[in-house]
Amino acid sequence: MGQATEMTTTAAPRRALEVAGGLVLDAGYALWRQVASIAQGRFAETTVHAPEGRPGGDSAGSAVPDVVLIPGIYEPAGFLDPLRRRLQSQGRRVIVLPELGYNRRTIPESAELAARRLRELGVSNAVVIAHSKGGLVGKLLMTAYSEEGLVSRMLAIATPFGGARYSRYAPTRPLRAFYPGNPVLGSLAKNLEANARIVSVGAGFDPLVGHATHLEGARNTVLPVTGHFRILADPALLAIVDDFIGEAPFPREQAG
């Protein structure tokens, strides 16, 4: 009994230190991506990024679907650059949306802007890879614009499909929009048909969205990662990205 008590009392502080360290690394990753995005001037660059080794970027007539990257709130297009480069190296044409700026608009406004840009580019049946709020924008593209066939399926990373419990206390209006009672989130939640074409990946400990990444009817995966941002560089997440792009089957439920 004494040994069990000692193990319990030492395990809790150790876990707390691990979580604290993970959150520091998470913040460092977010800061790195923000600084790198500004330094590379992504707002001034083209929206379409050709597959590596194929100049031009026109995929008309190609059987390989385009990949559309949608970052989260306060994340510029360049925030997801590591994923963009990885996908280009695998022969994919990647579309980013610098027009979204820091993605502070409402979800419907962001979706309309994205839809307009995809129409201009002649994109159809695209594959979306999104982070955080980007997954909500992506699902609206799949549902409200379904007749246009702009997006076929989506991999959503750390997306608060169930809302973020403490968002109503956030310091800015765009962040407060993620409260669970938001009508937009409620409307998206009622549309279950699209969920079967969505893979939702969450972190084991995400201080911003918690376990709200679970989506009924979707393929849900939880990775043993601490943080909201660092999951983007986790090797297990990158393997999921590769499988998703290659249309490999996923387990229905996986816990980390």
Score class of each variant (00 low, 15 high):
P76F: 06
P160A: 09
F178N: 05
G256Q: 11
F229H: 15
R219W: 12
P51W: 00
V24M: 12
L150C: 09
P82R: 04
A189P: 06
R230S: 13
R116N: 11
G138A: 15
A11H: 03
L23E: 03
A27P: 05
D26N: 10
K190M: 14
D206S: 07
V67N: 04
P180H: 04
H131T: 01
T221N: 09
R219G: 12
A115R: 01
L232W: 06
L87T: 02
H214F: 14
S187N: 08
A164Y: 01
A144L: 03
R153E: 09
G2V: 12
L232H: 08
T8W: 13
L192T: 15
Q88W: 03
S146T: 12
S187A: 15
A189R: 15
A114I: 05
T106Q: 08
Y74V: 02
R104W: 03
V24E: 09
A156H: 03
E120K: 02
G101P: 07
R117Q: 07
R219P: 09
G186N: 11
P207N: 11
V94D: 03
L223E: 11
L192P: 02
S167N: 07
Q40P: 02
L97A: 03
D242N: 12
N182L: 10
F244V: 05
A114R: 07
R92V: 02
Q88I: 04
G91M: 00
A39Q: 10
D243S: 15
I70F: 02
F244N: 05
A236Q: 15
V128F: 06
A196P: 07
S89D: 06
R119K: 05
L80T: 00
V94F: 01
Y166F: 14
I157Y: 01
E6H: 09
D242H: 08
G78D: 03
E148T: 01
A4H: 11
L23R: 05
A255M: 13
A233K: 14
G101Q: 08
T213R: 13
R54T: 12
V184G: 01
R165E: 14
D81E: 13
Y166D: 13
P76Y: 05
D243Y: 11
P249C: 10
L188V: 08
S146N: 10
Y166K: 13
G217P: 13
G57D: 02
A218V: 10
L100M: 10
D66M: 06
A239V: 06
R104N: 09
L121R: 00
S152D: 15
F229G: 08
A39G: 06
E52Q: 14
A39T: 07
V151R: 00
A170W: 06
G202A: 10
